[in-house]
């Protein structure tokens, strides 16, 4: 074997870098997981040692990232078709599907065990259940089976604050479930708005999004209904143990804006949307990101002010 043949057999121009493996963990989704889990952990009525708190958030984030890698492994065929996901490491040919699966499984096991050791077994069990729910229930089953995929699958993304709370307290109460409900109810309008202006993507991939199965008019109605229910829940949360005047002010303003956005989407027809390239739908989607960030930010602010005699009612 000559040097040239060794070169040819071992060098791959598209070989993955460390960043490609990191991209498998869906860093953007991870940042949402980190933030909501951190709020769950800090809003809990107990003090956690900073090192333990840091470990808890890190392992929750790694668990979330692991489920992202398993999702990319399973959905590689869909990602290859959709414009939004074509550049991901597997469809781009940088990482083999098997590598993504191995990484996902290894990090899942590691994160669950380490979270249980760092905090408590209940937190570890909840993280394991979240990974199972996202990978098996959502990715493998619901995503390709029902237009309600986003609704039920949204539960997986809503678990982090609950895990953060349990990691801190070792017990369960109603407050973390209010944070769960907030994210759970927020997910459908957020993704349906995206589906409205990315319709062709889901069509091509054969994913039964509501826009594909029930049409765009029905999707607009669904967005409005979910936004109304979300507004009731979000404002109602202000009067719970994690709420307070700051949260109430944020919730009233943000939900008024969100409702206005949903009403705008509901009133519009396809012709209006096509004319301005889905301006209202795009701005509703952007607003939804700010919406969740500000609600959880307000919960965090209330919690951080409590030791100073402020925050809460």
């Amino acid at each position: 074997m000559t040097d040239a043949s060794i070169q040819a057999s071992t060098l791959r121009e598209d070989e993955a870098s460390f960043g490609d493996y990191f991209a498998l963990l869906k860093p953007r989704v991870m940042s949402l997981v980190v933030f909501t889990a951190l709020v769950g952990l800090l809003a809990a009525p107990v003090t956690v040692h900073p090192v333990i708190g840091f470990c808890a958030i890190l392992f929750i984030a790694i668990g979330g990232g692991a489920s992202g890698a398993l999702n990319m492994w399973w959905d590689a065929d869909i990602d290859m078709v959709m414009k939004r996901t074509k550049g991901r490491p597997i469809p781009a040919g940088k990482v083999e599907p098997g590598e993504a699966m191995s990484l996902g499984l290894a990090l899942s096991g590691m994160s669950v065990i380490m979270l249980a050791l760092a905090t408590n077994v209940m937190a570890g069990a909840f993280l394991a259940f979240t990974i199972f729910f996202y990978v098996v229930v959502y990715t493998m089953w619901l995503k390709r089976a029902t237009p309600q995929n986003i609704v039920i699958g949204g539960a997986a993304g809503a678990f982090p604050p609950v895990i953060g709370w349990i990691a801190a307290t070792g017990t369960m109460s109603v407050e973390p479930w209010l944070m769960f409900a907030l994210t759970f109810m927020w997910t459908p309008p957020h993704f349906w708005a995206l589906a409205l202006f990315m319709r062709n993507d889901y069509d091509d991939a054969g994913v039964p999004m509501l826009t594909v199965t029930h049409g765009r008019r029905a999707t607009r109605v669904h967005i409005l209904v979910y936004t109304i229910l979300l507004a009731l829940l979000a404002v109602g949360t202000a009067f719970s143990g994690i709420g307070g005047p700051i949260y109430l002010a944020v919730a009233v303003v943000m939900n008024a804006l969100f409702l206005l956005g949903a009403l705008k989407i509901w009133r519009r027809d396809e012709e209006d949307s096509e004319q301005d390239n889905f301006k209202a739908e795009r701005s509703f989607f952007k607003l939804s990101l700010l919406y969740l960030f500000l609600h959880f930010g307000a919960i965090l602010t209330e919690a951080l002010l409590k030791p100073f005699g402020l925050g809460g009612w």
Binding site: L11, R12, E13, E15, A16, S17, F18, Y21, F22
Partner: peptide, 12 residues
């Protein structure tokens, strides 16, 4: 490519 491999090993 070697730079990329070095970066990957360093990352791990």
């Amino acid at each position: 490519l070697h730079q990329r491999r070095f970066g990957r090993n360093m990352g791990v």
